[in-house]
Amino acid sequence: MILRVSRYRPGVDAEPVFQDYEVPDRDDWAILDALNHIKDTVDGTLSFRWSCRMGICGSCGMTVNGEPKLTCGTFLTDFTGPVTVEPLRGFAVIRDLVVDIDPFLANLSKVTPWLVREGEEPASEFAQTPEQLEAYKQYSMCINCMLCYSACPVYVLNPDFLGPAAIALAQRYNLDSRDMGDRFDVLSSEEGVWGCTFVGECTSACPKHVDPAEAIQRYKLTAALRSVLPFSRRRS
């Protein structure tokens, strides 16, 4: 199998170029296995991110034949011809397949992605019913792989857009019965939910079935109701 890999060396290359590598066409190899084979036995200068190899850490996201994918869960057997591997789109390339994730992390921090409480800490843990857990569980499955950002045409054109994962994570806490935070100002801003044109590619790209498109549309309703009824409940 031929892997056509995007290569970029800062200070040396004016722009990314493609380099072809021949790798064993093994039935049990993911794209990440093929990249590690290249790194270990063919070209040690190839740079890319990976960690767990189990679809949990989210660090091995790349563009595979034009689509954002976790390379640990995308297999050589899924393809019949050369496989093109590029960095995630919408992010500045640091080197080869490694992209700058600082803007993504900055967007995450804007939505206060933690439980916000007011008053004294309780003497015991906050118990939740199964129904209360189910309200936000779907959105808690996000692994911050950034595939939804790479698939989102809005974010690619406007990096100031909060993006699907950040908004879905905000909803994870908005819908948590233990949270007392108020994320209205950041989510209802021009760079928040109203920047989304509801293409839905973020949901299609998500490997954990989080459905960030649904999270965005749900909060649009919340923001609209709150604009009309300022004292309406924030959870929806």
Results as ranks from 00 to 15, higher is better:
A106R: 08
T77D: 01
M180Q: 15
I101C: 02
S150K: 02
R53E: 11
K137Q: 11
T41A: 15
I31M: 09
A166D: 12
Q132Y: 04
F48N: 06
D40K: 15
L162A: 05
V156P: 00
M146W: 04
K69E: 03
R26W: 06
R9W: 00
I94L: 11
F18H: 15
D20F: 05
C57Y: 08
E86Q: 13
D33L: 14
E15A: 15
S236P: 00
R53T: 10
D13L: 03
F91W: 10
W194I: 00
P87L: 02
D78P: 00
G66S: 12
V99C: 02
P113M: 07
C148K: 07
V228F: 13
C72R: 06
E118S: 15
N107S: 11
V85F: 01
S51L: 12
G11E: 01
A34E: 12
Q19Y: 01
L108E: 13
A106M: 00
D96E: 03
R9Q: 05
H209D: 13
T129A: 04
S51E: 11
L162P: 02
N36I: 03
P207V: 01
P164D: 09
G55E: 11
D100H: 02
Q19R: 15
A34F: 04
Q171R: 15
P87R: 06
K39N: 07
P153H: 10
G55H: 13
V93M: 08
R178M: 11
Q132T: 03
V12T: 02
V83I: 14
D100F: 00
V23N: 10
V42C: 11
S227R: 11
N107G: 09
T80G: 12
D13E: 01
E120C: 08
E214W: 00
G55M: 09
C206G: 05
V186Q: 11
A123F: 13
G119P: 06
V186R: 12
G11N: 01
A213N: 07
R234S: 04
G58N: 13
F231N: 05
L88H: 03
F161Q: 09
V17W: 09
D100V: 00
E118Y: 15
V156R: 15
P230L: 05
D13A: 03
P113Y: 05
F18V: 04
V98I: 12
C152M: 13
G66N: 09
S109W: 06
C57E: 10
R9H: 03
A92H: 02
E120M: 14
T129V: 00
V12C: 00
N144T: 04
D179C: 10
G58W: 11
S140A: 13
D179N: 10
Q138P: 00
L70M: 09
G163F: 02
I38K: 10
L3T: 01
S232L: 06
P164W: 07
L147R: 06
W50A: 12
E121V: 14
V23G: 10
F18P: 04
E214D: 11
A127N: 08
Y149F: 14
A165R: 05
S109C: 00
A215M: 02
F104C: 05
F104M: 09
P24A: 12
A224W: 11
W50L: 02
P103S: 08
W114I: 05
L187G: 13
C152T: 06
R53C: 05
V111C: 08
M180L: 12
R89Q: 14
D96K: 05
R178L: 10
F184K: 14
C206A: 06
D43H: 07
P68T: 04
I167Y: 11
Y219W: 06
Y149C: 10
C72E: 04
S140T: 15
